[in-house]
Design a protein around this nucleic acid. Structure first.
Lengths: 194, 194
DNA sequence: CTCATTTCTTAATCCTGGTTAACTTTTTTG
DNA sequence: CAAAAAAGTTAACCAGGATTAAGAAATGAG
């Protein structure tokens, strides 16, 4: 069922029936059970993953052995280690499902083939990367212009539904602080509104 | 003198003579004097800028009125606000030369035209954005796995030449701490090597 | 339904780096 | 070359979150 992906692509570029069929032919769909992995440290990242349903996380282990989440992947987002995927070098990231998920995979090989068969897709992925880049810029800004507490409160107002879906310690990890601290600020009334 | 740019592009994709000429035709070169601006808050970002020579910075003003540098642009790097450039919405960033600089500009209009005339360039910019994305990921990692002091010491060992070129307070701003703190750690011998 | 595991909470203590402010050195400009 | 502006230094005090540890609550598996 690659319809969701085709629909997403069509929001950025316009595919003909034939092109859409080629995209679909190069994509495979995978069910990922909660807590299962799409990538583990030391492996080469094999594919770019489009989340149709469910939620994944991308994290690395820091020197204290903590899992630091750098990205969540929810419906209609791509998740991968572009660096490892592109260079073929081993990744130090983990990609794991935090809910049962349905994912469309485009392997490195299919990806390269896709660029040849449907050159328009080059543009699509340029736009996807531009969007990811803009998101990263914004995240840097928040990191440096807000206190941890403010960042948490803002996140909750921006994505109230998402906060319900994930354990708190993962949100703390994503926002860059400890679960203890998150618990602390949840336990008191807001002073400043973010 | 767009040779530097063409050479750079050819490291990622292969342009024919004709294609290279079209790229050159759509690019304009500008000399930017130290402290002059390519973008100021409230303006719409007009172009993507390729640094041939010199050094620029991209920063925003936080709520305390401090200039927080999110990116430096040195030789062979692109610098722009992709979000504003793409959407046509006003930027809240500033791009400023911190040395006399020579810059190749590709305006939004030229950019769009370029993608039509030389579709290969779509791929080039996808790869450029991929590189920027990878750099952002790495920066997130360092931010969360190292103390400010370690990050400073690592930066100095990785880019000793660059550190010489810029004022310390800009390096502090880029690395995410205060000039006073930078001065403090410079004034003492390293305890842990980063 | 019960036991084991995972997740969340609370509190005491500590530390990294911020803030403020005054001063020194360097760079720029007329 | 002199004065002004910009950049860098030092130090006292402070605060936002980390760390550690122990227990409580929720979730899941058999």
């Amino acid at each position: 069922m690659t319809d969701t992906l085709i629909a997403h692509i069509n929001k950025f570029i316009r595919l003909t029936e034939d092109e859409a069929a080629r995209v679909a032919a190069l994509a495979t769909t995978v069910q990922v059970k909660k807590k299962h992995f799409l990538l583990q440290p030391g492996e080469v990242c094999r594919a770019n993953y489009f989340v149709v349903k469910g939620c994944l996380r991308l994290y690395f282990i820091n020197r204290n052995g903590q899992e630091l989440i750098t990205q969540f992947g929810i419906e209609n987002w791509w998740i991968t280690d572009y660096d490892s995927l592109e260079t073929g070098r081993p990744s130090h990231y983990t990609i794991q499902a935090i809910e049962d998920a349905e994912v469309i995979c485009i392997s490195k090989r299919s990806f390269d083939e896709l660029m040849v068969q449907v050159p328009k897709m080059e543009r699509y992925f340029r736009l996807i990367l531009q969007r990811a880049h803009t998101a990263a810029m914004r995240r840097f800004e928040y990191l440096r212009d807000q206190s941890d507490e403010e960042r948490y409160r803002q996140f909750v107002t921006l994505f109230p539904g998402f906060v319900q879906r994930i354990p708190q310690y993962m949100l703390a990890s994503y926002l860059g602080f400890t679960p203890q601290f998150l618990s602390k600020i949840r336990g008191k009334k807001p002073t400043k509104q973010a």
